[in-house]
Design a protein around this nucleic acid. Structure first.
Lengths: 237, 237
DNA sequence: GCTTGCGAATGGTTAGACCATTAGTAAAAT
DNA sequence: ATTTTACTAATGGTCTAACCATTCGCAAGC
C-alpha cells in the first residue's frame, strides 16, 4: 500500500538539485558554480559530502572542475564523450560483442547515408571528394598506407554522420566507430583487394550522396557494411 | 618534444587501479572489496579521497556500495544501464530533438525487426501473440485504453529488441523508447483510425517476425515508423 | 522455538586544518 | 615603458579524527 520512504543520501540530493538546475536551463553551459566553501553552506552539508556530489556530476560529464584562484565547477556543454566511454567499457567487458557492434552498424549506416544524401550541401561534396582523394593517395602508398586508409575511411563515415545533422546518430556512431576500429585492425583479413573494394564502395556511396539519391545511398551503404561483416565472420570461424 | 607530466589526482589513481583490476578479471563480479578503513591504508590515502574514488566507480556502474555490517563495495556485473542513462541525459539536454529521435528510430527499427525474425523462438512467438492480444483488448476499451495501448506497443518493440539478442540495440532502444514516449503523447494526433492502423502494423510485423521473414519484417517495420513520423511532422507544422 | 534487544562492523557525514595550484597584482629589473 | 619577478589571495585537493546511521548476527529472555 505505501511505498518505502526513499532515504536519499545527502550527496545524492545535492547531485539531483544541481542536475535539475542544469537541465531546466537555470545553470547554462559555461556558468560557474559558487566555490565549494560557499556551496556547502547553501546546501547545508559538509565539504566532503559536497565534493562527493561534485565528483559524481563530473563523472556524468555535466561539470568540469578546475583548480586555482579562478577555478571551480563549470557547467559543461552537453557532449557525447561519456557515452563513448561507457560503450568502451561495455565492449571491454564483452557485454557488447564484435558481432553486436557489426550488426548495429549494419542497421544504422544505411539511415545515416540516406539522411546525408538528403541534406548534402556543396561544401559537403567538396569535403567528401577531398577525403576520397586522400584515401586514394594512401592506397598508392602500399602496405604502409593501409592504416592511414582505414583512418580516412572512418573520417568519411563520421563526416556522413555529421552531414545527417542528427545528433543522436553523431553521438552513437562516434562511439561505435571509435570502438570498432581496433576490432577491424585485428580481425579483418586486410589485403590489397579488400582495400580496393572498400575504396570503390566509398566512391559509390559518395556519388550517391552527392547526387542526393537517398535510397541508393542507403542501399549501397548497407550492402557495404554487410559484406564486410561477412568477411569478418569468415575470419573468426 | 616531451609530454606534460600527467598530474594524477590521488582519487583518479585509485579509480584507475580498481578499474584495471575489474577489467583484467582479478576482481570478478560479485567480489567484495575490503572495507573503506582498510582500503585507505592499502592505497595510502585518506578516507575522504578514497570515498571520492568509490563514488566515481559507482557512477560508472562498476561497483555497488551497501551500508551495514556486511556491506561494502561490491563489483557489479557489467550492464548497460549507465549507457542508457547517458543517452537519456543527452536527450533531455535538447541536444537531441524529437526529429532526431524519430529519424534515428527509423534507421534502427528495421534492423531490430530483421534480427528478431532471424532469431525468433517458439517462446517468443507466444509472448508476441500474448502482447498482441493485450493490445487488442486495450483498443476495445475505447479512449481510456489508448494510453495502455501505447504502453503495450512499446512493450512489443522492446521485446523485439530483446529478441534481437543484440545488447547494443537493447541498451540504445531502451533509452530511445523511454524518451520518445512523452513526445508521442503530446505531438501525435491520436485517433481511433490511427490506433487501428498502428495495431494492424504491429500484427503484420509480428507475423513476419514469427515467420522468420527478416526482409519483410525490416520493410514493414521501417515503413511503419516512417509513416508515423510523417503524421507527427504534419501535426507540428 | 520465537522474539527481542544488544553489540559490532560498515558506510555516511561532519568539522577543521593544511597543502597545491593558479590568476591577478604590485614591485623590481631592464 | 616594458618585461620579469615575487607575492597574495582564492580555490580545489588532501588529511585527520571523530561521531552518526544502518545492518547483520548472536545471545538473552520469553
Amino acid at each position: 500500500m505505501f511505498k518505502t520512504v526513499k532515504q536519499n543520501r545527502a550527496y545524492q540530493d545535492v547531485v539531483e538539485q544541481i542536475q535539475e538546475a542544469i537541465m531546466d536551463g537555470s545553470l547554462a553551459p559555461g556558468r560557474q558554480l559558487p566555490a565549494e566553501r560557499e556551496l556547502k553552506e547553501q546546501f547545508g552539508v559538509s565539504r566532503g559530502t559536497l565534493r562527493e556530489a561534485l565528483r559524481v556530476l563530473e563523472q556524468k560529464g555535466l561539470i568540469e572542475i578546475r583548480t586555482g584562484v579562478a577555478g571551480g565547477s563549470i557547467v559543461r556543454e552537453a557532449h557525447s564523450e561519456t557515452l563513448s566511454e561507457n560503450l568502451a567499457l561495455l565492449i571491454r567487458n564483452r557485454v557488447v560483442s564484435l558481432q553486436d557492434l557489426a550488426e548495429f552498424r549494419e542497421g544504422m549506416d544505411g539511415g545515416v547515408a540516406a539522411l546525408a544524401a538528403k541534406r548534402c550541401t556543396e561544401e559537403d561534396r567538396v569535403a567528401l571528394q577531398s577525403l576520397l582523394a586522400e584515401a586514394e593517395t594512401h592506397i598508392k602508398e602500399g602496405r604502409k598506407g593501409w592504416d592511414l586508409f582505414v583512418r580516412t575511411d572512418e573520417q568519411i563515415h563520421m563526416l556522413l554522420a555529421r552531414m545527417s545533422g542528427n545528433q543522436l546518430y553523431i553521438a552513437v556512431l562516434t562511439s561505435v566507430y571509435h570502438n570498432i576500429h581496433s576490432y577491424y585492425e585485428n580481425y579483418l583479413p586486410w589485403s590489397k583487394a579488400l582495400i580496393q573494394e572498400n575504396y570503390l564502395d566509398l566512391c559509390n556511396i559518395v556519388e550517391a550522396v552527392s547526387a542526393a539519391d537517398a535510397d541508393k545511398a542507403r542501399e549501397i551503404s548497407q550492402s557495404h557494411v554487410r559484406r564486410f561483416n561477412a568477411y569478418m565472420e569468415g575470419k573468426q570461424a
